[in-house]
Structure formats: C-alpha cells, structure tokens
Amino acid sequence: MIALAPAPAAAIDDAIDDAVSRIRDRADALGGGFSELGAAIARATAGGKRFRPALVAAAFEAFGGSVADARGLYPVAAAFELLHTAFVVHDDVIDHDTVRRGIPNVAGEFRLRGRARGADAAGAALLGDAAAILAGDLLLHEACRLVAMADATPSQREALLGLVDDAVFISAAGELADVENAVSADYADSEALLAAAHDKTAVYSFTAPLSAGAVLAGAPAEAIAALAEAGRHLGLAFQLADDLIGAFGTADQAGRESGGDLREAKRTPLIGFARESDAWSRVNEAISVAHTGPIAVREAQLALDESGARTRLVALVDEALGEARIAASDPALPADAARLVSTIAGEIARRIP
C-alpha cells in the first residue's frame, strides 16, 4: 500500500527480525514445547505486506522526520506489525481456523504436535488453541515492550503508549461485537455492523500507526488530531473494501477461494444492507447454500448485486475516502501529510472489486 525507500524498509524488517529473535531466544532458553512455540511465532510473523509499519515511517517522513536521525522509529514501526500478527493469531482461534496462507498456522502446527504425541482430536485441538492464544499474548507483550523501550522523549513515549492502548482496546471491542453479531439469533442492523467493522480495523491499522509516526516526528497536537481523523475514515474504507473482496474478489485478491465470506455466511455490512432491501428473501436463501460450491457462490453474488447492497457499500467506501481527504485538507497538516492521505485513499479505492 505504501512504497518505502529501500533503506527504511530494510530497517523496519531488521527491527521486526530483532524482536522475533528475542522471543525465540527467550523461548529456546525455556525449552520443550515453548521452544517450538517461539519457532511458530517466527513463522507467523514472516512475510506479509507490513503496511502498518510502513504507515508509521511514511507519516514520520511526511512531518519532516529524518530517517538519518530516526529516534525510536523502527522499533515502534515493528511494534505495529507484531500487534497485527497477534490479532491475526487470536482471530484464527476465534474462527477455528488452522491454516493461513495455505500452511498450518500456530494452532494448526500445535494440533499436529499434539497428535504426534498421542493426543486425541479434542486434546490436539486444546493444545493448538492454547498455543495460539499464548503466541498472541507474547506478541502483544513484545509490541508493548518495543514501544515502552523506544528511544523517544517521555512525552512521546506517553503518547505512543496511549495509541497502543487505544488500538488494543478498540480492536478487542470490535472483535467481540463481530462475534456477538455472528452468533445472535437476530441480525444486527447495518449501523452496528459498520461500527464493528470500524473498530476491528481502523484504529490499529490506520489511526494509531499514522499518529505514531507523527508523534515521533514531533508534530503538534492539532496536526496529529487531523491525521487521526483522516485515519479513522481510511480504516473504515479499508475494512469495507475488504468485505467486498471477501464476497466478490478473485482468489488472488482474497488469498483464498472466491466468495469466502459468502461460503461462511459472514454477517458483514454488505449483508446488513441486503437485509434492508426488498430482495432479502432471495439473498438469504442464496447465502444459505453458498457453502455448497462455486455455482451457489455465484448465485449469491448475483443476488447481492441485484439487491443493491454492493452498490451501497461501494458508495460508502467512496464516501469514507472523501471524508478522509476532507480531513487531510485541514490547514494544520503539512502538504506532504495531505499527499500521504490522498495516496493511501487511492490505494484503497483500487482494492474495490
């Protein structure tokens, strides 16, 4: 999403590697299965787009920060990648997923370990879930440790810890609301679904990393507030575009079979809008059998299209991106920061299937 110059990108990778190496070293010293957990955490952290740490660095530079004198920048940027990985690992437990990117995730690896040690299916599942929960906890701890120990002024550190605090609490609230919406007998209304979508992603993926970069660059409070407001809208747009990809995107876009959200009957804002339409009966019927195969998925996609839900959601993404650009026009923001918001908005718009 954000292209960094080779030097900052490499420095961020090095900071992430250093943090993961510390986890592995501590785990190896304790031995046994915990050593294997350290290795699984390293695999879970490897790869990925790493756009959240890139946002930290991009905001830092947009506010005039010099990468030659980047006090605390790279450990703080790395912290947001570890935070993301922690949420992903925990999310897989919540969703009972044991595979990610085509290979066993932390829970999947430890289920296999349990079976190899003679556990039955229930015991292996218990071990897998326990390992994944602990892995996520360790990553959350390391993210907070990186920020707490970053080379920053006391006031900057206080602000950065506040950003991480918001990211953790608001994301947890969004995740819980999302699960409640999924298991409730009655459908939540579209407003509640939109709120959960925002809280799950916007703060930890956009508002907090962008604000962190601005804090480290010494930006004034009013500029940070304006950037945070833009990040809030960018984050909502990103999540809604993700929902569109989950329903209509290609396998390459989604990283799994096309229509995965429809196969799983996820209650996203897209479904909330369909429920408010006159075509809901047909949409509901189509989604109820979408798990049976690609033909049924295509029928559900057509029903959603004809209900107007897709058009409404695309319009909402466009509206959120427009609000982000308006927030970026605040005179408190330097021109480079406004351009950064515009660049991110353009990248999100290009994700819409």
Rank of each mutant, 00 (worst) to 15 (best):
A5G: 09
A9N: 01
A10Y: 05
D14A: 15
D14S: 14
A15E: 10
A19P: 08
V20M: 05
R26P: 00
G31I: 00
G33K: 02
S35C: 08
E36V: 01
R43F: 07
T45W: 00
T45R: 04
A46S: 14
K49P: 03
A54R: 12
L55E: 08
G64H: 08
A68I: 00
R71I: 05
R71N: 12
P75R: 09
P75W: 02
A77R: 07
A78R: 06
L83G: 07
T85H: 04
V89A: 06
D92G: 03
I94K: 01
H96A: 15
H96V: 13
D97W: 04
V99T: 13
R100K: 10
R100W: 10
P104M: 08
R113E: 11
R115Q: 09
A116W: 03
A124C: 06
A124E: 02
A125P: 00
L127W: 02
A130F: 00
I133T: 15
L134R: 10
D137Q: 06
L138G: 01
L140W: 12
A148I: 06
P154T: 05
E158G: 03
G162R: 14
G162D: 14
D165Q: 14
S171L: 11
G174R: 02
L176A: 13
N181C: 13
A188M: 08
S190V: 15
S190M: 03
S190A: 13
E191N: 05
E191C: 02
L193K: 05
A197S: 15
V203W: 10
T207L: 08
L210W: 09
S211I: 02
A212I: 01
G213N: 09
V215A: 10
L216V: 09
A217N: 06
A219E: 10
A226Y: 08
A230Y: 04
G231C: 10
H233R: 03
L234M: 03
L234D: 09
A237H: 04
F238V: 15
L240W: 07
D243I: 12
L244E: 10
A251S: 14
Q253N: 03
Q253D: 14
A254G: 15
R256H: 12
R256C: 06
E264L: 02
A265W: 02
G272L: 06
E276C: 01
E276W: 02
D278M: 10
W280K: 07
A286M: 12
A286D: 13
A296S: 10
A296I: 06
Q301G: 05
L302D: 15
A303P: 02
A303I: 13
D305G: 05
E306D: 15
A309G: 04
A309D: 07
R310D: 09
A315S: 14
V317S: 05
V317C: 13
A320N: 12
L321V: 13
G322Q: 11
A327P: 00
S329W: 03
S329R: 14
L333G: 03
L333Y: 05
P334V: 13
D336W: 11
D336N: 11
L340V: 11
L340K: 07
I344C: 01
I344E: 01
E347D: 12
E347A: 15
I348K: 01
R350H: 12
R350G: 07
R351T: 15
